[in-house]
């Protein structure tokens, strides 16, 4: 397994270089260093000299990817691309254009994102699987039919509607939880409840349908018939046999997103004022802060690759037949 993991990590390097290159190209196709300087220095009384100084100070006064005036390798290394990219691979994200340390900001904002995402994932998984099992248990009955209709209806509604509706019902009308905000320690619970509940409700439709499909596929297999023939109760069949065998497709969808939980959710965090990473990238794009954009894209790519590797490893745990 170790050699497999090393091989996968080695594969990841060219992928990350490609992602970084693509991010760089896309960013500088849309924005020029002049644009960045102008946006950063503000709208009033900005002189061309101030812009030149800003660019020089932030390393944007060099050619973007090729420096014809330099000698030898410096033609490639004395460029914005090289200087802004090379340290990423050491996870040194550098500084944002406003001078803040990006790594420190990411560390600070990861916690609140996880505070929402982890309970949301766990509770969501439990509720979705339970609901899907219930539907599968009552398959081909009115409960199944109404359940599927309800699921389709719920997954058709925008998550924004659930957020605003949740705030209106639980915070404004029933006055049970704060509308928005965040705190540290145990005081965070009252702020987490509503986003988690809203996330649960907005995701239960699609989740329930997805897991129902998986369970129904498993229920039709021979080993289930054998289990029933042994006289096991239907609940025992579902939880001891069907669920265990359905774990591979479940893990495929779940483990891969675990590392990405760090990245937060843009809309949820904006509406509930959660100081997480969700809006960090969008804010950076709006303020044309290339340092943050490339750091977040890079981090997202790394986490996604980690997620895929973890998924492969988890297969070996749930299915002894799988060997890496």
């Amino acid at each position: 397994m170790l050699s497999y993991i090393i091989r996968r990590i080695a594969y990841a390097i060219p992928i990350l270089i490609g992602v970084n290159l693509l991010t760089f190209l896309l960013f500088f196709v849309v924005n020029t260093p002049d644009d960045m300087a102008r946006l950063h220095l503000g709208m009033k009384r900005v002189t061309p000299e101030a812009m030149e100084k800003w660019k020089a100070d932030h390393g944007y006064d060099k050619p973007i990817a090729f420096n014809p005036a330099a000698e030898g390798m410096a033609k490639f290394t004395h460029t914005i691309f090289y200087e802004k990219s090379i340290r990423l691979f050491l996870f040194d994200f550098g500084r944002a254009d406003d001078g803040r340390n990006i790594g420190a900001d990411i560390r600070q904002r990861m916690g609140p994102s996880l505070a929402i995402a982890v309970p949301g994932l766990i509770v969501g998984l439990l509720v979705n699987i339970t609901a899907a099992m219930l539907i599968a248990f009552f398959r081909a009955t009115y409960i199944d039919a109404y359940g599927v209709v309800l699921a389709v209806a719920m997954m058709s509604i925008s998550s924004l509607f659930y957020i605003i509706g949740g705030q209106f019902i639980f915070s404004k009308t029933l006055r049970l939880v704060p509308i928005s905000g965040y705190d540290t320690g145990w005081d965070a619970i009252k702020f987490i409840v509503l986003p988690v509940v809203v996330g649960l409700i907005s995701g239960v439709g699609s989740g329930m349908r997805w897991y129902r499909t998986i369970f129904l596929e498993e229920i039709g297999k021979d080993y289930v018939r054998s289990a029933r023939a042994k006289g096991l109760s239907e609940l025992a069949v579902l939880f001891s046999h069907v669920l265990r065998n359905a774990l591979v497709p479940i893990l495929t969808g779940v483990v891969v997103v675990i590392p990405l939980l760090f990245m937060g959710s843009l809309i949820t965090e904006s509406f509930f004022s959660i100081p997480g990473l969700g809006s960090y990238t969008i804010d950076a794009i709006n303020s044309q802060d290339f340092g943050i954009v490339r750091a977040m894209v890079f981090l997202g790519s790394v986490l996604y690759i980690v997620g895929l590797i973890l998924t492969d490893i988890s297969y070996t745990w749930v299915d002894p037949r799988v060997r890496l």
Binding site: S171, K172, I179, S180, G181, S270, F271, S273
Partner: peptide, 13 residues
């Protein structure tokens, strides 16, 4: 001072 990015929570609070 609390950060509020959306207008609806500010108004309701």
């Amino acid at each position: 001072f609390s950060l509020e990015k959306e207008g609806i929570p500010v108004w309701n609070k």
